[in-house]
Design a protein around this nucleic acid. Structure first.
Lengths: 357, 357
DNA sequence: TTGTAAGCGTTATCAA
DNA sequence: TTGATAACGCTTACAA
């Protein structure tokens, strides 16, 4: 108190705490209500004279309204909660980036909560963020905990799911067109001469995108007449802590292939790296001994071995569109849950080229 | 109003809006103050009987205090602002992760603002975050805008700088021991037989970590007796949009080397990838034609060419310690600005091994 | 030990 | 068009 008085009596522009609307009102010789009106309805409702007086006072005190107080009063916070399973995942970061840009442009701030791959904390994340009055959620989580999400929806907060849908959940959903992407990848391998395929995924565990990709893979294999094409395929779910198992899976892939060419379709960048590591352990050449194409195109993909063929996801758009959907809902858009699918893009490189030595 | 009444009279657990402290007080038959005391001083001040009544009521309504209202009242928000130059940078993400963990453990939530490499927005970021009453900042930005930071400090908010210090700025600073790391890298190259070195950095532009690494490189070269060791070194600042220039720099590096071995020390993972790309364009073999060691060890480092030698940064610790410093300050620790340096770790791989063919 | 009431910085509903 | 004034959900003197 006393220190405050001292400071202000010295009249030095060193306000130890932020100026409030009351300060501005006093400075401009008007009421708080007037200042508030200036802020929210600009000068629609104000005399030109008063408006400029307020404007000057605001500038003089470099006043910025407190979003805390505003959201307390309004019930709206201009905050959007982003829950991400794992910030370490480049895909998630790329999506985050697109989403953040869109949010900032629309005047929202993103409040991020990283689960660190501990999906148990999904409820905690949602609770914490609702406590902070976020107006809606962008979720890129494993989706194990449908309860948490319905909880959010129950609070009347719109939710957008990215990449992974939550079963039995009513919400907008933005994702890669997994079926199309798988078809693209497998067709590419087939066209490059590979006929015995292995789809390598992390343990599926009910994660929707993994399920969809695996199902699409099997469907595509099943629908392609095996007699004429010679195409065969299997799935391998790989646990991170068991590299040996991956080596074995690759060995038996090659055995099954016989005189046909074997190739791997890997379900994301993490898995791709594991396959690359296994190939290195086995001393096999990418493309020539076993072909490889993987989901997610990264900055390092071109420089691994002969270059990693990949299926690039439009991550930035994914994030941007997810944020867009949410913001539309916040503006009051009433619509049944939408599903938006974006196409991937094939990036062929050396790992899907068979070189005869 | 009426809808609220209707709902509560039906006694269905479907509160359309969150329960407030008043609801809990009513439910427990006590005053708001009592509930507040229960929340903040647990049962220190309360009768066992009343405490349990409150506890039950809280559970029944699944009440969670509003951090917005709390921070409005207390002036403290339990929020920490994190400003990062570029979420796409794996180093920043890794730091972010460590910081987030530490913050969450201490009961703080991280509010992230990504500059998207547009350093002009640093002030904007800090203003936005101060508006949200963040209690302090963790900054991993380019540091061009010292004004923004002093601004933050002026509001009495503690600041911790990670990796990049801001010149003329009073704040805690947590970083890799760049001098030690450079020495480690150069010694390693020297020990592996490389004598003509090139330090490749992004354009330095006053970014402290870049300056320090470059200066350390020159100092090390200068201090090593050229006669006995044959060691020579130059620096090349590379602009992202000019790959040609990098190719030229590598070519002249090799010319200068003559019959000695040439090698590159690259200043971070982004640059490393560019050097790798240039080597591929030139058709040179990593290690054999030109040696390479780079700052930042990544998940893909082992799989590029013969494996990329690198200097691993303790990113997780960096983030954790930065958050720790900040939290200590928030707890009232009075101390002159600290500088904390953590050691890097050498990860030797094939790219710094010269293979005679 | 508990309750009453004021106030944190806003906005919204009244009157004037 | 402007100004009191009462909330928003919480904490904290001060009283009881």
């Amino acid at each position: 108190m006393s220190s405050k008085l001292t400071l202000s009596s010295v009249q030095i522009a060193l306000p130890t705490s932020r100026a409030t609307i009351a300060d501005v009102a006093r400075e401009a010789g008007v009421s708080k209500a007037t200042v508030s009106r200036f802020l929210n309805h600009r000068d629609k409702l104000l005399t030109k004279d008063i408006a400029t007086r307020v404007e000057v006072a605001i500038a003089a005190l470099s006043y910025i309204p407190s979003p805390m107080a505003q959201s307390l009063k309004r019930g709206r916070s201009r905050l959007i909660g982003l829950v991400v399973a794992d910030v370490t995942n480049p895909f998630s970061v790329a999506v985050l980036r697109g989403a953040e840009k869109a949010c900032q442009e629309a005047g929202y701030l993103l409040m991020m909560f990283n689960l660190g791959n501990d999906s148990c904390r999904e409820s905690e994340a949602i609770e914490t963020l609702t406590a902070y009055q976020v107006e809606g959620f962008i979720l890129n989580t494993l989706g194990g905990d449908a309860k948490a999400v319905t909880e959010a929806a129950r609070h009347g907060k719109p939710v957008v799911l990215v990449d992974r849908r939550h079963h039995g959940m009513q919400a907008d959903f933005v994702s890669l067109d997994n079926v199309g992407a798988v078809r693209m990848g497998v067709s590419h391998l087939l066209g490059a001469g590979y006929q015995e395929l292995l789809f390598v995924s992390e343990q599926i565990k009910g994660v929707s995108s993994r399920e969809e990709r695996e199902a699409a893979f099997r469907a595509f294999i099943g629908n392609t007449a095996p007699d004429s094409s010679g195409l065969q395929g299997r799935t391998f779910e790989h646990a991170a802590d068991d590299p040996q198992a991956l080596d074995d899976a690759l060995r038996s892939l090659r055995e099954r292939a016989g005189n046909r060419l074997p190739a791997v379709l890997s379900s994301n960048a993490v898995v791709t790296l594991r396959v690359v590591a296994a190939m290195a352990r086995l001393g096999w050449m990418l493309g020539t001994d076993v072909g490889l194409i993987g989901f997610d195109d990264t900055e390092w993909s071109p420089y691994i071995g002969p270059g990693l063929s990949s299926i690039a996801q439009p991550t930035d758009d994914l994030g941007r569109i997810a944020a867009g959907c949410l913001i539309e809902r916040l503006k009051g858009l009433q619509l049944p849950p939408r599903q938006i699918f974006l196409s991937g893009q094939l990036v062929p490189r050396g790992s899907s080229v068979h070189t005869v030595i």
